[in-house]
Amino acid sequence: MNDIREVEVVVVGAGQAGLAGAYHLRRTGYAPDRDFVVLDHSPGPGGAWQFRWPSLTYGKVHGMHALPGMELTGADPARPSSEVISAYFASYERAFDLRVHRPVDVRAVREGPGGRLLVETSADTWATRALINATGTWDRPFWPRYPGQETFRGRQVHTAHYPGPEAFAGLRVVVVGGGASGTQHLLELAPYAAATTWVTRRPPIFREGPFDEDAGRAAVALVEERVRQGLPPRSVVSVTGLPLNDAVRQGLADGVLDRQPMFDRITPDGVEWNDGRQVPADVILWATGFRPAVDHLAPLRLREPGGGIRVDGTRAVADPRVHLVGYGPSASTIGANRAGRAAVRDIRRLLADPTAPILEPAERAARDERTESAERAAPAESAA
């Protein structure tokens, strides 16, 4: 085993959720590399954004919410989002002196001596009193399995490795998935491809007009209820539907977004339905989403029979030392910010008095409202 180093809190992941948690630890008096440490396995700043395809420019990004305490200003909308957001995250880490350790792979989190958790990594082993897990989903692309998949003579590509539209020039492409990535890929590659076919398990829901706050809260509540029951989380967009913007309207009018039901099998030369219909394909592009990257938590046995980790707020119900930020209802940029703050509040309380009872959801909501009111009345903190 590597040398064991002790801290109060370990933050795993330096995407939006991890940096939000680290910011709130710093703001409340915790010192980096003394009281807490941030571990990230990526080669550089930017979280999952650094791996996005080059054609996803900053102007095409929907709902990028600034990190707490520092706005993203003056970004060129024509510049790749991977470059813009990676540079922003790098500036943020420097501004708040978060001292992210990278590249560090967290291999396992297990029970340690003295009531601490042992975080085993490719570098050191950390003994910590609390853990903020902010590992997101990018490292676990979901590949559905269909009969005949192994016989397909063409290429199969997942969103995680999408190379940009030029790679599909002159090819027949089947795009699988009804989320934001699926529609963006389809609209982008259609002018290059010889033919496109769009298939989804469920008919897509396009949302007309602005998405108001009440609807947003209702959508998040549905996802939150799943994780509270220990079920695998669904994405918020699966509940809210897709925005009906100008590009989507044009795609519907042109017939590019002509959704077909999910095929029943894959053949060597394409896909096939039970009614005998066949579509030839050179490429199957799986825009089928991701699953939470939480395998390193397996030694703690947090998973419920339903397949997910039961979470109340951000706290793992099975172990109050573990907080999952960017998981389920907080898997959005604004949700990650709020969850990072909430996790730090609970962790501070736990570390101050490990025997104190955990608040019930109603008590937690009332407490958070009082704290947020106080914070709104306080002067804003700047990174300058």
Rank of each mutant, 00 (worst) to 15 (best):
G340H: 12
V119M: 08
P68H: 07
W286P: 02
V9M: 01
P43F: 08
G13R: 13
R102D: 00
E375D: 14
A180D: 00
A384R: 13
Q16G: 04
T355A: 15
H296Q: 15
A218E: 14
T355S: 15
D312R: 11
P320W: 06
E188W: 02
L56H: 13
G59M: 07
G164P: 05
V239Y: 07
F211L: 13
S42R: 15
R99L: 11
A221G: 08
Y88T: 04
P32C: 09
E208G: 07
R172V: 05
D105W: 10
T333D: 07
P203A: 12
P268A: 04
F142D: 06
P80E: 04
E381V: 15
T355L: 05
L187A: 08
L56R: 13
V325R: 14
P80D: 05
G74K: 08
S86P: 09
V100P: 02
R321M: 02
R94F: 00
R265Q: 13
I334R: 14
G179I: 01
R34Y: 00
L187Q: 07
E381D: 01
V279Y: 03
E375Q: 15
D258N: 15
E71W: 08
V248P: 08
G255E: 07
H65K: 08
A134T: 10
V283D: 09
T267H: 05
R172Q: 09
S81T: 10
W143K: 13
D124S: 12
G29R: 09
V61R: 14
D254C: 03
